[in-house]
Amino acid sequence: MLKNRIIPCLDVKNGRVVKGINFVELKDAGDPVEQAKIYSDGGADEICFLDITASNENRETIIDIVRKTAKECFVPLTVGGGVRTIQNITDLLLAGADKVSINTAAVKNVDLVKEASKKFGSQCIVVAIDAKKVSDNKWEVFTHGGRNKTGIDAVDFAKKVEENGAGEILLTSMDKDGTKSGYDVDLLKTVTNNTNIPVIASGGVGTLDHLYDGIVKGGASAVLAASIFHYGEYKIKDAKEYLNSKNVSVRL
């Protein structure tokens, strides 16, 4: 039986982890490679890097981090943030990323998703959708880290990226992100019911129960979380044992 995945996400800015693990045993708390290694040794099913570097000039930095991490972590590595072109994707894959997540660029030009999945295979193309609730059971896509309204319906867009070859959807609720009050389960449910590709839930995790809700109530194939793992509140192992005790199948 296919297991539900737990994916810790590391936010990286100018080569340093900004929202990261705060463990005492860390030699260098800002080193993304060391943090990724801790997660992968701890049983993470995948590792996700989100490059939040504002400028374009620093693309080399994230590529270097990916290169170093990929030599030490032998679980899948997803990298997102600032991916705009086929060349960006090529560079990340060559450095050792297994999947690349496309966000704003996919909204601007869905052909990028089509072209990328044709060139590299759907298995490595993830489309990240940032959605905000606009009315009952209606969500809209936002870009640029939630700043820009697009007028595009999130569910329609999810279907569209699936048709264009996306292998997975990373769905973040902008309303819930950072609140620690749980995923937007209705959003998840609506998107998972309307698409046939795996959906990764993101935004809002504060407790282990929220992970359960994302999978069982929201229908997500994988759950992504940042802060509950970073600040040492829970280890990946705690999350897996908790889910397992509630009959959610995970890789133990």
């Binding site: 039986m1 296919l2 297991k3 795996p198």
Partner: peptide
């Protein structure tokens, strides 16, 4: 069943 079959399986 969702496709691709992505993730960890026994």
């Amino acid at each position: 069943f969702k496709l691709p079959h992505i993730g960890w399986n026994e």
